[in-house]
Amino acid sequence: MARNSSFRFKQFTIQQDQCAMKVCTDACVLGAWADVTDADRILDIGAGTGLLSLMVAQRNVYAMIDAVEIDAEAFFQAGENVEKSPFHDRIKLFHSAVQEFTSEHQYDVIITNPPFFQSDLLSPLDKKNIAHHAKSLDFSELLESIERLLSPTGKFNILFPVEEALQFCTKAESTGWYLTHKLTLFHHSGKKSFRQLMTFQKTEPVHNVSVDEELYIYETDGTAHHEDFKKLLKDFYLIF
């Protein structure tokens, strides 16, 4: 996906020149895929441009959404993106680290595209380190924050590269979380998977059922978008 200064969707536009984390395909898949059904209150951890908050606001037409962002420039840009959207009256932004964020209520759903390059070399740009690396938010802190903010019957949706997803899943399951839904993302058939999207909850799923799916962005030719990808993103992408 091109890293333009703005990205236009069918119902809103994302300005992103002040954000280290730009609009990317895997984040769009998370926003379209995450289970936000029947949620009255949703929390977006690490809002960045506000992309995920806006996508889930479009999908769930009544939920109130809180979004937490630690970086000041991203926080202000997310605020501008939200304010110019049709969903501005249902999204509230907070300039805070999630470890320090408190709320008077618990959330039915949490969605997050967290810092994840735990083992990569650090960038000399601190803003990029915060956005891309688990420098300011490690797995334990993230899970502790989610458990504190999520309702006992709630669920959280998260995105990681494949290696980090395995590490995170091991950590989550060791602290009492159940993986109930997983989507493995590929560029196209013949390529290795590059992202995993996961849904966790504290309550054991009925009959121990866990759904494991795969999604290809492109057809085998690497050019035409796969029909399943088009179906998932058709309400958002102008090209579909």
Rank of each mutant, 00 (worst) to 15 (best):
S136W: 07
F117E: 10
K92S: 14
G50N: 05
E73C: 07
E83T: 11
W33Q: 03
S85H: 08
H105K: 09
P115V: 03
D35S: 12
I70D: 00
Q77G: 04
A47W: 05
D66C: 09
E100I: 08
N81G: 00
I42A: 04
V56Y: 05
D120N: 15
A20D: 01
Q99L: 04
I70E: 03
H133R: 14
M55V: 15
D35M: 07
A67N: 05
C24Q: 06
R59D: 05
L142P: 07
L54T: 12
T102A: 14
V61H: 12
E104I: 06
K84L: 09
Q16G: 03
R148W: 02
D35K: 09
T37H: 15
A72P: 01
E141K: 10
S103D: 04
D138A: 10
D26R: 05
P114Y: 00
A34F: 04
Q11W: 09
D44E: 06
H133C: 08
C24W: 04
V98N: 11
L142V: 11
L30A: 14
D17M: 10
D66Y: 07
C28N: 01
V82F: 01
A57F: 15
I65E: 13
M21I: 04
F76S: 10
Y62I: 14
G31V: 08
E144H: 10
I91L: 07
V61P: 12
L125R: 14
Q58S: 15
D66M: 09
H95Q: 12
V98K: 11
D138Y: 08
Q16D: 04
K22Y: 00
E69H: 03
N113I: 07
H95W: 12
I45E: 00
V61R: 13
S85D: 11
A74W: 01
K135C: 14
L51T: 13
E141P: 01
V61E: 15
A67W: 02
F76P: 00
A34I: 04
V82N: 02
A78Y: 12
E104W: 03
I146L: 03
E69Y: 02
L43P: 08
V23E: 00
F87R: 12
I110E: 07
L43G: 11
G79W: 06
L121H: 11
A27C: 03
